[in-house]
């Protein structure tokens, strides 16, 4: 099915088009949402809203960008809105649930009575990474996450964010510098202990 056929199918509310859309884009949508909201459960719940939004706003899709880019844009916007809602409500995002310990077990929110030093260090790194990403200004965070986690090229990020290539380069450069600064401060303090 071409993008054009898919778009027409969705506008007709054709179930086969829905199936094709979900099968082809659910992984992209959920994984990207996950990098922003910090855990897979929330990302999966949010993905339902994202697909509803894609279908309901399909008639406003301007073909100036590719369908995939447009879907990325909706995913990033919805994910950032969820993060903002959570922040307003003072809810913690649970990034740890994303990670598994080196031996493959999932790290939980509540500390186990027999937490090994490796598990503890792993959990600490998760929180540190989450905090460092969370402290980035929004545009830097979008560009950094899309590049570092989603493996999007600068050109793709420029299209998703509707900005020029130099702006993307600058955002990612600044994001990396900020991340590094935050991590160096943390690790230096950690070494002093």
């Amino acid at each position: 099915m071409t993008d054009q056929e898919l778009i027409e199918g969705i506008l007709r509310r054709d179930r086969k088009a829905f199936q094709y859309l979900v099968n082809n884009y659910q992984k992209q949508v959920i994984k990207t949402a996950c990098y922003f909201v910090g855990n897979m459960e929330d990302a999966e719940d949010l993905s339902q809203e994202i697909f509803l939004d894609i279908i309901h706003s399909m008639d406003s899709f301007k073909k100036s960008s590719s369908l995939s880019t447009w879907i990325y844009r909706i995913t990033v916007n919805k994910s950032l809105n969820m993060v903002k809602r959570h922040k307003r409500r003072g809810m913690m995002l649970r990034i740890e649930s994303l990670f598994k310990t080196p031996d493959g077990r999932e790290t939980g929110m509540t500390p186990e009575p027999h937490v090994s030093p490796a598990d503890f260090e792993h959990k600490e790194k998760c929180e540190l990474l989450q905090a460092a990403i969370g402290r980035l200004p929004e545009n830097q965070r979008i560009a950094f996450v899309l590049n570092k986690f989603d493996d999007q090229t600068y050109k793709q990020i420029a299209e998703i964010m509707k900005i020029g290539l130099p702006a993307v380069e600058s955002l990612i450069h600044r994001a990396k510098a900020n991340m590094q600064k935050h991590l160096i401060i943390h690790f230096s303090e950690y070494q002093k202990k």
Binding site: R15, F18, N23, Q26, K31, F51, L52, F99
Partner: peptide
């Protein structure tokens, strides 16, 4: 490790159900 995390295999079914 974060990049390697995969969504629940039933996620697609749930999305489709919600759309329908």
């Amino acid at each position: 490790q974060v990049k390697a995390a995969e969504p629940n295999p039933f996620a697609a079914t749930r999305i489709l159900q919600r759309l329908e």
